[in-house]
Amino acid sequence: MERLPRNRTYLMCPPQHFTVEYAINPWMDTTAAVDADLAVRQWDKLRTTLTGLGHVVHVLDPVPGLPDMVYSANGAFSVDGTVYGARFRYPQRANEAVEHRTFYQRGDDWRFVAPEHVNEGEGDFAYLPNAYGGIVLAGYGFRTDPAAHAEAQEVLGRPVISLKLVDPAFYHLDTALAALDDRHVTYYPGAFSPASQRILAQLFPDAVLADRADAEAFGLNLVSDGRHVILNTEAVAMGHKVREAGYLPVHVELSELKRGGGSVKCAVAELRA
């Protein structure tokens, strides 16, 4: 099957203020210093890789005191011009949601809906517009409350499939599952509860299955335009798997962002107007 790209629009935030000042996931180590200059260079390489593939990248201004703003995927979740805002689990990140809300409310292209329930945006939501008429896959277990799934369904008008995450190392859905195009996914089964594994197998019998080593390399924290799959350089085996499935892997070095528990997808929010 020929894999065809689709032009996308993304939102990213440069890591000028990125540090690991606190530990809110198993990957964060406050004793290991972050190379801020290297983080910015790696981030910019990711940005130029996306624009070089023909995609539009909007940039959100970083704010001092919010070191995790670089993980822009967590700030909201948009579908067809409607934006379901984030409400972060941890107070250290709470003000990021305000910055994202301001971004969307500046223009006339978006209908922004503030959440009542805790959720961390695209960190725990993925949209597949051509699967079953358009469905949202939603993770819970560590960061997002299950009640946010029902709230998102009402806000977005799309069916939401709840998936339980059970391994603290894969605390967001986007560390355990990724959309490869508008109807195909890749995921690591061991990150999910047995029931959620059965749901995924039923919905996506042709999924590209990852193993734990792929997930630990943040190989599932990827961005795909339907043909080009952008992964970090450590995810070599995952690159082979997506190539075997007909996609073209594009590797980008993001070693510094991994110190905070994220990689390619965490740094990139898709804007679906």
Rank of each mutant, 00 (worst) to 15 (best):
M1A: 14
E2N: 13
P5G: 05
L11Y: 00
M12G: 03
C13I: 05
P14T: 07
P15R: 00
H17A: 03
F18G: 00
P26V: 06
P26W: 09
M28V: 02
D35A: 09
A36C: 11
Q42G: 10
K45P: 07
T51R: 06
H55V: 09
V57E: 13
V59R: 13
V63G: 04
G65M: 02
G65N: 02
L66S: 05
Y71R: 04
S72Y: 12
D80W: 04
G85N: 07
P91R: 10
Q92W: 05
R93I: 01
E96W: 03
E96V: 03
H100D: 04
H100I: 03
Q105H: 06
R106D: 15
R106E: 14
R106Q: 15
R106C: 13
A114Q: 15
E120D: 03
G123Q: 01
Y132A: 15
A138F: 06
Y140L: 10
R143Y: 12
D145E: 15
P146W: 00
E151Y: 00
G157D: 11
R158I: 14
K164F: 10
K164W: 11
V166W: 06
F170D: 08
Y171Q: 07
H172D: 01
L177W: 04
L177P: 09
A179F: 02
L180M: 08
D182P: 05
V185K: 07
T186H: 09
Y187T: 06
Y187I: 04
P194W: 03
S196T: 02
Q202K: 15
F204E: 06
D211C: 07
D214V: 02
A217Y: 02
G219K: 01
L220C: 06
L222E: 05
V229R: 04
I230E: 10
M238G: 07
K241L: 10
A245M: 00
L248V: 15
V252L: 08
V252Y: 03
S255N: 12
L257H: 15
G260E: 08
G261V: 03
G262I: 09
A267Y: 00
